[in-house]
Design a protein around this nucleic acid. Structure first.
Lengths: 214, 214
DNA sequence: GGGCACGTTAACAATTTTGTTAAACAAAAA
DNA sequence: TTTTTGTTTAACAAAATTGTTAACGTGCCC
């Protein structure tokens, strides 16, 4: 024997390519196996069922998102710099994995239990990491009063929705792939301005942040 | 003979209940037939295939959205009032049909051709209806400069995303159904303020608008 | 080398799902 | 009453999909 973990990782990796990059959200076990060039039975051997493979992928990707958010929001940056980096990270991630959000949305909609599983109370809540910073901004009169929940959702709405609605946007505004990507790049500034009403600062990333965001 | 159009409408109607309200986005033809209490073959008799039933539903719902938007944006209201009404209409629609956006997003992602079909160049583009108003606001210095595309997407992102991410939101912030609905009501003001940086006005709807939005 | 442990494969079984069809049926027209 | 037209039904066929299993292969330890 020589493969072991390697095969399991390969299957997961190729499944993610199908789901997140090729957008084939209802890929069958056969299609996943083909993509990984392995026998379909191996998927069951390693993951028991298609469902559990999806669970495993969903959990991994959500944890990864959480880890990135945590790294950003516990960094030494100023509040507004953190938000700038966060926006940029989400948009960049969307450009790299265009259907990742579709996957998360559609899987949690299909079975809301999954959302609970992923957000157990013991996990770090991103909202808690910015609650005080946000309150300070508001108290200083630099931001219209709102709860941290509304703030976070304004933020993630504007970052994520354009990826979810990709085909509609492209149709409605007659965009090519090229101009769609340009549009998303522009959005980084647009989103920041929509939130803070000022220009987005250039942020110098620490090596640590750089590596976790790559 | 007595049914005809009635049966066809019934099937479509019940399918929409399944998709938009119960959130069963991958309902089978059998499940649709059960919901409508008709024989499954009738679905094929009237709609030929499951796919064409979905097409028909998707087209209807997108046209309906477009018609509402057009009614709002061609009304006699001021620009900011129009936006206030638009926000309110979208959120209310989401409360009524919680999975309608999920349906649109997942169907257009599954087959981007559909998005083209729905947004043919001959259709009225909502963006065109507000382009001039928006330019005037910006010129008057009442709004940060941005293209009408970014403006519209900021708007629809903040309105629609909270419905798409419903289960995640509820998990992350520990919301009940009750508090989730309250949260969405609050968002109307929050979204308006995020865009215009001022309180949302009370708008008196004309009877015509009232009827098309009901 | 022989046996062990694990990975891999092909074949099979079971289920689900879509789409078709021929017959039954019901109302209106002739 | 018979015919005609369009609707509804049950039964069937075909395809797709998931999960299981028994056999096979391959390296490794003794």
């Amino acid at each position: 024997m020589v493969k072991d973990q390697a095969t399991e990782d390969l299957i997961k990796e190729k499944a993610k390519v199908l789901f997140f990059q090729k957008g084939f959200l209802d890929a069958t076990t056969q299609e996943i196996a083909d993509e990984a060039k392995v026998n379909r039975a191996l998927i069951h051997y390693y993951f028991r069922s298609r469902e559990q493979l999806l669970d495993s992928i969903l959990e991994e990707v959500v944890n990864r998102k959480r880890a990135r958010a945590k790294a950003i929001f516990t960094s030494a940056l100023s509040f507004r710099e953190k938000i700038a980096v966060y926006i940029s990270a989400i948009v960049d991630q969307g450009l790299m994995y265009p259907y990742l959000e579709n996957f998360i949305i559609s899987e949690t909609a299909r079975d809301p239990e999954r959302a609970n599983m992923l957000c157990s109370p013991t996990r770090t809540r991103t909202t808690e990491l910015i609650r005080d910073d946000l309150a300070a901004e508001i108290k200083a009169g630099k931001l219209a009063p709102m709860t941290v929940e509304h703030f976070m959702i304004n933020l993630s709405s504007m970052c994520n929705y354009p990826f979810l609605a990709k085909s509609i946007l492209k149709s409605v505004h007659g965009m090519t792939d090229q101009s769609y990507r340009k549009f998303l790049q522009d959005r980084k500034q647009i989103i920041y301005r929509a939130i803070f009403n000022e220009e987005m600062p250039e942020v110098q990333l620490t090596p640590e942040l750089k590596s976790i965001l790559s």
